[in-house]
Structure formats: structure tokens, C-alpha cells
Design a protein around this nucleic acid. Structure first.
Lengths: 348, 348
DNA sequence: ATGGTAATTTGGAACGTTCCAATTATTCCT
DNA sequence: AGGAATAATTGGAACGTTCCAAATTACCAT
């Protein structure tokens, strides 16, 4: 038990080489002979050496810190937890480690967290921005040459890379599916009209309606809070129309669940008397009754994509901002009335 | 745009003081006069200084790295995501930052991840160990004076602190509740018998049965994988008994959901024809149909507790290992047949 | 003014690593 | 065997901070 921790010098002494050689071994340089390499490795094992990245980072550009920061706006939401898992997968196998923080939608906390990450010398940042995040908030980062990838919520005029799901494509597919089931009066329910995500999903809906030859009618879109309660509200408005819709694509799954609640309150059974389609495919979507037909965005693969893009930029030194939109998939379950009845639930 | 990053020396120059003084300001020392302090702060702001913790850690004991590591065995499980959120809360407000990694129950990955965290000089570690983790795995950490707090799963003979929920108390309460509803043949379903958590929950069940004067019968406990599929399996065995049980306390919520599936497959309605109680209170528990009666463990507060304990140990320099078990609460919903019918679902 | 004390400030010398230029060992060719 | 080339190794000198001991300044009571 020597007092201080064991350093590269200690193992150099033990292996009978110089500290420089040890350093070479540490970074797997091909310059060192096989013989010395194994001698050094043995010494490291014997003395219980642990690499001190802090010291190393002092000499190297921050791109080699092997830390990547991940900031999400709501880790409680399993969507983001899964996203983080996806990021962790690729990041970990690339020898990086993940700094994860949660902002709880609080922009001040977001600032603090990002500042803290900078102090620790992150090589790159993946962030799902809290509401009201400004494009300018990431200026200092990119100025310092730290790659940033924004996920889930795109940031208006910022010069950073972003990965968002194909919102328009998703709602368009939902409309197409409903139309193919014979529905002609299809509503768009829920969401706040002043957000980018709403605009995209609505645009997809409009495209879908036109593509199906049903045309777009403003009165069929009723906005509301993007929550369960909002959904119940929205369906109420829809049911009060003189010429009622028979189906709805909802802003997200929460709204869709709310719509189902509202339908039942009016003695209508979702999936039988009215078709509803959600967006996101949260876990509850498959276990709910009826199981929710929805647009699946697979947060985990989104996380992987984001991490891959980030790593690419880190390795490239300085990379051009790039925007990718990830594919999205309609998963048909029961709430749209087109279910394949109980098609084999798998079991160990 | 000077080439390198701005250092403490740059701002010393700009503020007309020495680097030592700047350092003093950085650590909020009372030794520096108000006048110089603000001069220095101004310079920092002007030059866009960012503190380099790596360099600082070189001179300081690792307890001051302000990084705490969090390792969970399954971030996909919202239980652990919530736990991480709880940790993050207290850790963040103490000025620390959280390194979060996911082992996916893989012990090799766990080793890698912890090694990586050590390299980064974490001040402490909170870990929910992957299956088959040995007590010895944390020896090097504690030898190096790094506090470790084990959560959720206790580690047999290790000398580290731990925070686990009151497993025995939980199942005992579940049995008591079922007995009070008039059930006499109560099964214990699911879980692998070779885990500490299983033992504890089973022990509580046994205690509960004895306390209710029902006695313990080995044939009423049927183990299985702690998953939905396992639960369906287990209920199958239970239903095949000559003298069927009328209620079951399940190893966890997943098993309970599986049991419900199995019940329905046999044309029995959980909550009406058979009482089911789960354990964990995952989010789906309240939205499922029927809503699941279960033992709530509040992962978030568990995370907070763990973080507080860890911080205490970090500040104390070297602290005695301490084990706390967190209280647990029976939340009665519909699946046990004792529901308060639809007692006001809150909305907006 | 003068000494004494308290309040501030300040140069190095670490910390553990990587990089560079330079050195030494080894191999190959004629 | 001699030298050129190549392969391995190696001493510093950084990196940006904190700490220590020492130096300076300010303040007071004589």
C-alpha cells in the first residue's frame, strides 16, 4: 500500500522502461516491441494501475476526452430513457462514456448542465432541448469546436446537426391507412399549433388527405394540449360537429388515449365505433385496451443514429452540420378497427 | 480568437493579478478582497473562460472531481430511469454531475463501465448491480477510498453501503390485505429462487401467511422467470393444482401482468375471479386494465436517498458502510378485487 | 514615524500524462 | 565489416490547475 496512486512512472520503473514507453503502450502504438509491451502490461496488472484521463486530457484536444454529454428534457418519459439507451450502446462500444443529465424541461438547469459538461471537457453533445431553447444557446459550444447533435425537437435557425423523426411521413401514412379502411371524414386532434412538431405532423395529415382525394378542411383539425386531458377535450369538440368524423389521427399517444376516454364517455368503443391513431408508440400503447394503432418512432434507434452522427463528427475533427430525419412506421393494432385479431402473442 | 483556450493565466493577465489569485477566486476563497474578486470575475466573463476540471483534479483528491457515477442494470425499465432521475436531482443540486451507464444485465459491460468511470476519477458510485455481481467486484473501489452505494439489489457479503426496499415488508402487507379480503389459498408466483430479492419477498410472504394464521405450504409457491411470460406460465401451474388458489402475490409487476394474461386465457377475469397483487408499481400498473394492485417502491425517492447517502460519505472522507431499507407501500387498485370503484379520475 | 499584526497577494513546484526531438539498438545490404 | 536505413526507446518540456511558503500591502496603536 504505497501512499499515492500508482502512476505511469511507477510502472515504468517496475517494467524497467521509460515512462514514454509506457505511454506508448497505453495508446496501443505499433512502435513498441511485443516483448516490452507485455512486460509493461504485466506491470500494470500487478500494480493495479488505473489510467488517469484527467491528466491525459491536459495534453490532448478535448475530442479525445472520450466523454460525450447527453441532455434530455424528461428522463421520466420512457421515450427519452430509451433514447439514452440507444446512445449509450454505440457510445460505449466506441470506448466513450456517457454523461447523462435531465433538465426536466427547465432551461436554466439546461444551461447549468451544459456548462458543467463543458468544464469536464466533453467531446460532443447530444441534446433534446428543453422548451424555449434558443438556437444561440449552442453557439459557444460550436465556436469551441465541440460537435452538437440536436434530437427529437429541431432547433429553428441553429447551425448544428439534428435528428428528428419523419413527422409528416408518419401522419400521412396514418391518414392513408384510415382512408384505405373506408373512412372519409378523418380529423386531426390535439397539439399546440405554435410548435415545429405540430406543424410537421399537421402538414403530413394535409398531404395525406389530399393524396387520398379527400381534400383538407380546416374544421377537422382541433388543437388542444398534447395530453390525455387535451385529447378528451378535442374528441368532445369533434363529436359536437354536425357532420361528425369517423376517425382521427392524434398529435401523440397521450392525446389518443384521451380521445379513447372521451369516446367511451359517449358510449362509443374506440376501434369499433370510431378509429383512432396515435403517434410515438409509447410502451403503454401495446398493453392498453384497445391496443393503440400508432406511429412508431423507435427512440432507441434514434439514439443510436444520433450517437453515430456525433462520433462521425468528432472523428472528422470538424464536420458540416447535417440533418437527418429518421423513418417512422405505422403499427396497426386495435384502436383503428383493422386489427389482425390476436395474431399469436409470443411466449417463452 | 486566440488559438488555444483561455486559461487562468490569461485572465490573470487581463485582470492584472497573479494566477494564484484567480485560483483563489475560482474556489470562492474568503482571502481575496471584494475589489479584486469582481475584477477577476469580469475578466472571466469577457474572455469566455471555462474552468478545466481535468487540470484541477490533477492536484486534488478525487473526492473533488464532482463526478458521481451511476450504473444501472436496465435503463429501459422505467423503474431504473426514475431512480436515475432521483439521483440526478440531489446530485445536481450539490454541484455534482452524473455519469450514467447501463449494463443491460451484462457483467462484463459492468466491469468495463466501472473501470472507465474510475479513469475519469469519479468521487463516488451508485450501482444497481447486474446479476451475478460478486461482492469482490467493488473491492478495488473501496480500497481506493471511493464510496460505493449499492441500490435495489443487495450484495451478500460486501462491505459497501446499500439501499434496498423493504421487500419482506411489502409482500407481507400484500398477504395481509388479501387475507383481509377473505382469501385463504394465496399463492406466491414468479421470480428466480437464487436471488436475494426473491428470498426476501418470499420470506415476507411466509411471514404474512403465518401472521394471518393461514400457514405456509410449499406447493403454493411457483417460481418462474421474472417476466410477463414467466407470470403466464406460473399462473398456469397454479390453476392446474387440485386445490386452486384464489389469489396470488407476484414477484413483480411483470409477473403479475403475465398472470393476468394467463387468467384471461382461461376465461377468468383478474380482480373478479382471482386476485392478483404485483410488486414495484411500474407506471403501466395504474393504466392497465384492470389497474394493478401492487407494492409501490417509489424509485425516485430511493434514488434521492442513495445520492444523499453517497454525498454524505464523500464529504465525510471515509464513512462507515451503512444499510438502509426504504419503506414500501401497498397501493390498492382493481386487480385484487377490492377497488374503490372509479374514485374520480383527475383531469386538467 | 514605528513596530506589530492582520489581510492580501504571489511565485514557484507539483499533479500524471502526451508529444517532440533526439538517442540508441537492430537489421539489411553490398 | 561498414554504413545506411529502420525499429525502439527515451529524456525533457508542456498542459492548466492548486497548494505552499514567502512576500507584500494595509491597518492600528503606540
Amino acid at each position: 500500500m504505497t501512499k499515492g496512486r500508482v502512476t505511469v512512472i511507477d510502472i515504468a520503473k517496475a517494467a524497467g522502461v521509460s515512462k514514454s514507453t509506457v505511454s506508448l503502450v497505453l495508446q496501443g502504438s505499433p512502435l513498441v516491441s511485443e516483448a516490452t509491451r507485455s512486460k509493461v502490461n504485466a506491470a500494470m496488472r500487478d500494480l493495479g494501475y488505473v489510467y488517469n484521463r484527467g491528466a491525459a486530457n491536459l495534453r490532448q484536444p478535448s475530442a479525445k476526452s472520450k466523454i460525450i454529454g447527453v441532455v434530455v428534457n424528461d428522463l421520466t418519459n420512457s421515450f427519452f430513457a430509451e433514447l439514452a439507451v440507444g446512445v449509450d450502446m454505440v457510445v460505449q462500444s466506441a470506448g466513450f462514456v456517457q454523461f447523462l443529465s435531465n433538465t426536466s424541461e427547465n432551461i436554466d438547469r439546461q444551461r447549468e448542465v451544459i456548462a458543467s459538461m463543458r468544464e469536464h471537457g466533453i467531446s460532443g453533445l447530444i441534446v433534446s432541448p428543453a422548451r424555449a431553447t434558443e438556437a444561440a444557446d449552442f453557439k459557444p459550444l460550436v465556436a469551441a469546436g465541440i460537435p452538437v447533435v440536436v434530437v427529437v425537437r429541431s432547433l429553428p435557425g441553429s447551425k448544428v446537426s439534428s435528428i428528428v423523426s419523419d413527422n409528416a411521413g408518419g401522419t400521412a401514412a396514418a391518414v392513408e391507412h384510415l382512408a384505405s379502411l373506408g373512412h372519409t371524414r378523418i380529423a386531426f386532434l390535439g397539439g399546440f399549433p405554435d410548435t415545429a412538431v405540430f406543424e410537421e405532423r399537421l402538414a403530413g395529415y394535409v398531404d395525406g388527405m389530399n393524396a387520398a382525394g379527400l381534400g383538407f378542411r380546416q374544421e377537422l383539425v382541433v388543437s388542444s394540449a398534447p395530453s390525455r386531458a387535451g385529447g378528451a377535450d378535442a374528441i368532445g369538440w369533434a363529436m359536437a360537429m354536425s357532420d361528425r368524423p369517423t376517425a382521427a389521427v392524434c398529435f401523440n399517444d397521450a392525446v389518443a388515449f384521451g380521445a379513447c376516454d372521451g369516446l367511451r364517455a359517449r358510449h362509443m368503443e374506440p376501434g369499433r365505433d370510431f378509429a383512432v391513431v396515435g403517434f410515438d408508440d409509447v410502451i403503454e400503447a401495446q398493453t392498453a385496451v384497445p391496443a393503440l394503432t400508432t406511429i412508431s418512432v423507435d427512440p432507441q434507434s434514434m439514439g443510436r443514429r444520433a450517437a453515430q452522427l456525433l462520433l462521425k463528427q468528432i472523428n472528422a475533427g470538424k464536420a458540416e452540420p447535417e440533418s437527418v430525419t429518421t423513418a417512422v412506421r405505422l403499427v396497426v393494432r386495435e384502436s383503428c378497427g383493422a386489427a389482425e385479431r390476436k395474431s399469436g402473442r409470443k411466449m417463452a
